[in-house]
């Protein structure tokens, strides 16, 4: 079990880098747009980069779904937890497991409706880059899969470590 968990975390470590790289691509594309508009034009160089915005938007969509997927590993998804945290463990802990089960079921639904959406995307192309939109739409089922995997990993870890799952999110504060 521990080795499986370690494998999942290796995957998450790689995905975290991917997610950071996606943000870097987004930033790079927008920066290029600014440079084209202000620097190159001022220098009299005539280029047009209509693809920057589209590329930035699509990489960002992937960043959101993969990033949220990675976030599930440490229960980083923002929630109103103060009530559950203040309850006695014998009530609060089952509620927490119940919400995780519900979340996993919802991720399953997202995966399941994500597939026909990808199918729809096969007959759509992006206006500028002429990209098949399914390339973007895959972010949903892939992200949903990752969220399921990481939610299970969190439960398994808390069970193995005999930790109170309600406090699994405690770590550095998010901004």
């Amino acid at each position: 079990m521990r080795t499986v968990l370690a494998g999942v975390d290796k995957l998450n470590a790689v995905l975290a880098l991917v997610v950071g790289a996606l943000l870097a691509v987004t930033a790079g594309a927008v920066l290029y747009q600014v440079i084209v508009r202000f620097v190159l034009t001022a220098a009299g160089i005539n280029v047009s980069a209509p693809w920057t915005e589209e590329l930035a938007r699509y990489t960002l969509i992937w960043m959101v779904f993969l990033g949220a997927g990675v976030g599930c590993r440490r229960a980083q998804m923002i929630a109103l937890e103060f009530l559950v945290r203040r309850m006695p463990a014998r009530i609060g802990v089952p509620i927490r497991y119940g919400t995780i089960a519900l979340s996993i079921a919802f991720f399953g639904l997202l995966f399941w409706i994500g597939l026909p959406f990808v199918e729809l995307g096969r007959t759509e192309t992006s206006p500028v880059m002429n990209l098949e939109k399914s390339v973007v739409y895959w972010a949903l089922p892939v992200g949903a899969m990752l969220m399921i995997l990481n939610s299970i990993a969190l439960v398994v870890e808390c069970t193995l470590d005999k930790r109170d799952i309600r406090f699994a999110a405690d770590g550095p504060a998010a901004d």
Binding site: V19, L23, A68, G71, I78, A174
Partner: peptide, 15 residues
């Protein structure tokens, strides 16, 4: 690490 942290932090808001 800085990019990854910022990305995950943003992702959980944007979702």
């Amino acid at each position: 690490r800085i990019f990854a942290d910022a990305a995950v932090t943003s992702a959980v808001v944007m979702i």
